Simulated scan of single mutants.
Amino acid sequence: MSTLALLMVLGASVAHALWNIAAKSSSGDTTVFVWMYYTAGAMLCLPVGLTLLVMRGDSYGWELLYAAMITALLHITYAMLLQTGYRKADLGVVYPVARGVGPVLTIVVAVAVLGERPETLALVGGLVIIGGILIVTGRRLFQRASGLGAGLLYGSATGAAIAAYTLWDNYSVNDLAIEPILYFGFSGAVQCLIMLPWVIRKRALIRPTWRSDRRQVGIIAALSPLAYVLVLYAMTTTSVALVAPVRESSIVIGALLAWWLFKEPDPVRRVAGALVVVVGISLVAVS
Rank of each mutant, 00 (worst) to 15 (best):
A204N: 12
F184L: 15
W210A: 15
R214L: 08
R215L: 13
I194P: 01
I194S: 05
P180F: 02
K202G: 02
Q216R: 09
I178V: 14
L182E: 11
F184N: 11
R211V: 07
P197Q: 12
L205D: 14
K202Q: 11
A177L: 07
I178E: 06
E179Q: 14
R211Q: 15
C192Y: 00
R201H: 14
L193M: 14
W198A: 10
F186N: 02
F184R: 05
A204Q: 13
F186V: 07
T209L: 04
P180L: 00
I194K: 00
P180I: 02
I181K: 03
I206M: 10
I206A: 09
P197W: 05
T209H: 05
I178Q: 06
V199F: 03
K202M: 02
R211K: 14
I181V: 15
F184H: 09
W210T: 11
I206P: 02
S187L: 12
S212A: 15
A177I: 07
R211M: 13
E179V: 10
I181P: 04
I194W: 01
P208H: 09
R207M: 13
V190Q: 02
G185V: 04
V199P: 03
C192W: 01
I181Y: 04
L193T: 08
P180S: 10
P197V: 03
A177C: 06
R203V: 02
A189Q: 03
L193H: 04
I200Q: 10
I206D: 07
V190T: 07
R201K: 15
A177Q: 12
V199M: 04
A177W: 01
A177H: 13
Q191I: 13
W210E: 07
S187A: 15
L196A: 15
G185Q: 05
I178W: 04
G188D: 08
R211T: 09
L182S: 06
A177M: 10
R201W: 10
